[in-house]
């Protein structure tokens, strides 16, 4: 390498930037809900295989996130929140991100198929395709309902975790999917209400930009209202005991209460958007606690603490 042509030499991206490309912040919720789906499922799974399944779900989500940032680099560049990501800030070239994303996706799906089963692997592959293509490429730039559909991508982990244990699809994992699906719009629109300037600059049709604040607030309220009975549905169909049922009622009731405050409010410039920020912060805690209660309920049943 003594006669290397300097023109051909490009500083390779730092491995930390590849790690950042997988959106480690989002990963926490992905891993947590996947673990909960796995623990709440009836049946047992070898710990090594359980670890492998969770790893595959996490790596698959990371691959989808990398593909998302490969595709959206120019949009990310004009938004303050995302401008410091590896590609728009110039620390990594787009091709590396693309290859990295495809590699992670492929490896995770193949490993899931070989170690766990091809049903779980197929759903994992579909969830990556759903996020990286259906959502990122197709729907996000086209419809203000993008978040509703994008929520589907985040709703897959508990479903895959559950199916990794049972090997087949039943109503319970689908309900877990639907709960996160319904939770995402109010969660994200609460955020969008207080960062909306950014999205209009990038030309992404976020609900508050397109339909206005009034309509967005009503829709937050509508989804929160639908979430209350839906989150209790696992109890109604007998999939869980009363521990989860009561917890879901209290947690979703609180969610609805905070949504009512956001939904019926009209913001004035400079009011700090306190209720919206509170709803957003609560929505994250909500999902963590709800899924933790699902697992607690299952263990309470195993150890005979509830009828």
């Amino acid at each position: 390498m003594t006669t290397a042509n300097p023109q051909a030499l490009i500083m390779p991206a730092d491995w930390r930037d590849f790690f950042a490309l997988t959106k480690p912040g989002v990963m926490r919720l992905v891993i947590f809900t996947a673990v909960c789906g796995m623990l709440a499922a009836p049946g047992t799974i070898n710990p090594v295989l359980a670890f492998t399944a969770i790893l595959c779900i996490a790596v698959g989500a990371g691959g989808a996130a990398a593909l998302n940032q490969w595709w959206e680099a120019d949009l990310d560049a004009v938004m303050k929140r995302t401008a410091k990501r590896p590609i728009p800030s110039g620390r990594m070239d787009r091709t590396s991100a693309r290859d990295f994303g495809f590699a992670l996706s492929g490896i995770s799906v193949m490993t899931m198929g070989l170690a766990i089963g091809w049903l779980a692997a197929g759903i994992l592959a579909f969830s990556i395709f759903y996020y990286a293509y259906l959502y990122t490429v197709w729907l996000k730039p086209r419809t203000p309902q993008n978040i509703v559909i994008g929520g589907g991508a985040g709703a897959f982990p508990p479903l895959i975790g559950w199916i990794a244990v049972t090997g087949h699809i039943t109503l319970m994992p689908v309900l877990l999917f639907l709960i996160i699906f319904m939770w995402t719009p109010p969660h994200f629109w609460a955020l969008a209400l207080f960062v909306q300037i950014d999205y209009s600059k990038a030309g992404i049709p976020m609900m508050p930009v397109v339909a206005g604040e009034r309509s967005t607030r009503w829709q937050i309220l509508a989804y929160a209202a639908a979430l209350l009975p839906l989150s209790m549905a696992p109890w109604f169909i007998g999939g869980t005991g009363w521990i989860y049922g009561i917890a879901a009622f209290v947690l979703s009731g609180m969610f609805l209460w905070l949504s009512i405050k956001v939904g019926l409010r009209t913001s004035t410039p400079g009011d700090g958007m306190k209720p919206e920020k509170r709803l957003f912060a609560y929505s994250i805690a909500y999902l963590f606690i709800l899924f933790a209660m699902l697992v607690a309920d299952r263990f309470a049943t195993i150890y005979g603490l509830q009828a």
Partner: peptide, 29 residues
């Protein structure tokens, strides 16, 4: 990513930085 558009050879410091980055990536790999 640092794109070197001119034809000058790499300075010693740049070469060291490049090698360090490559070594680090290899270790993680």
């Amino acid at each position: 990513m640092t794109n070197l558009s001119d034809n000058r050879p790499l300075t010693a410091a740049e070469t060291d930085a490049l090698r360090a980055r490559q070594r680090e990536r290899n270790k993680v790999m």
